[in-house]
Computed example of a mutant assay.
Amino acid sequence: MAQSIEQRVAQAAEKALNDHGYVAPVDVLVGMGWLQPLQRDHWRQGRTPYLEQVVQVDLGKISTAMRALHRWAQEQGLQPSETSYLARTRDRKTLRFSASGSPSFEREYRTHWLSPTLSPAKRARVQDQASRPPDLVVVSPLKDWTCTGCGGHGDLLLMEDDAPLCMSCADLDHLTYLPAGNTALTHRARKASGLSAVVVRFSRSRRRYERQGVLVEEQALVDAEASCLADAEARTRRRARDEERLREVDSELADRMTAEISRLLPGCPPQRAAGIAAHTAARRSGRVGRTAEGQRLDQQAVELAVVASIRHQDTDYDELLMTGVPRNNAREQVREKVDGVLDRWRRGSDR
């Protein structure tokens, strides 16, 4: 059965809230599949007059989704916070959302909904980050192009009013390129540089722009390199301490989840419970154990992790997928066996 707009809004909003502690209407439109990330990026770069022009549904559906988001956010007790949206262009012009340009519509799009569980410090950081002027973006093009200013070309371009400019015409040719890869060096160079820009390149396989590096002032890069060399040993020690602390936190979460699985499903073998917990709680895995619900040990989240393990280890689900059976159909075919294992474990038997 197809999901309603309200259900899809709630699902997209919940994911955004778990990802970064707040929900923005733009995030929801992307999460619902109505706004492609590439079109969103073009809009952020000032290459689209207004956002609704590239949303792939009519204004009626957009309005329904916006009302549903407002209701959902209020039901969840989220707190509204109006945010500035500026283009990633030299003039940092204010971005427009709606076809009409109505102040009330624009305000509705700009409103972010913040989790009430955020500490005051985290809330301030989230609001500051959301309102901060966006990075100036320079593109490493895939195709041949011609500068609209001088008729030349080059390895990099800046889009301005949907027209490409070379680095000279964009007054960025004095900057030095620093490839991505060294986080500390990049951070310090950008902080020391009066003018900087992020360099991106479009990935055809992933259908999105990906960061390649930054452009910074040459002296800023020299100073940043010296600074990094001076405290390299201290940063190595700090990184080791941070990694150890994260391992302890992850281990503690896995232990709590193991105990909760054993409590809910006493028939689950202890080694199996520990394996499920370690798998689903792995950092950066994107699995249910890393969601807010998983870290709170909500029963539904814990049981979803167990179901996923049963599906892969105790049924022929993976073989069905390999033979081309659609995922939903494969899940339906193994549902009875999954439910049988769950029922035995709930009763306290692993046989």
Rank of each mutant, 00 (worst) to 15 (best):
A281M: 15
Y22K: 14
R245M: 01
A230G: 07
E82F: 03
R237A: 13
G149P: 11
I62E: 09
D155V: 10
D242H: 00
R247V: 02
D161H: 14
L17G: 04
R88F: 03
T48Y: 01
Q76T: 06
Q313V: 11
L215T: 01
R88Q: 14
Q53H: 06
Y85G: 02
G77Y: 05
D135F: 13
E319Q: 00
A124K: 12
L86M: 09
E82G: 10
S100H: 04
M167P: 04
R241V: 03
G149A: 10
A99D: 03
Q129G: 13
A10H: 06
K337R: 15
E319P: 00
G275N: 14
D155I: 03
L229N: 07
G46W: 11
G101I: 10
P25Y: 05
K122Q: 13
F105Y: 13
D314Q: 12
A121I: 10
E293K: 14
V307M: 05
D350M: 12
S131A: 15
W72T: 05
S205I: 11
E293A: 15
K143Y: 12
A305V: 11
A12T: 09
P25C: 07
P37F: 08
R283Q: 09
A87I: 00
I276T: 06
Q79C: 02
L69P: 04
K122H: 11
H312V: 05
A121M: 08
R206Q: 10
Y209V: 02
A170K: 05
L142W: 03
A13Q: 07
S251E: 15
G101S: 01
I62P: 08
S285D: 09
N182Y: 00
V216P: 02
D171Y: 10
V288L: 12
T186Q: 10
G289N: 12
W113H: 07
A184P: 00
S251P: 03
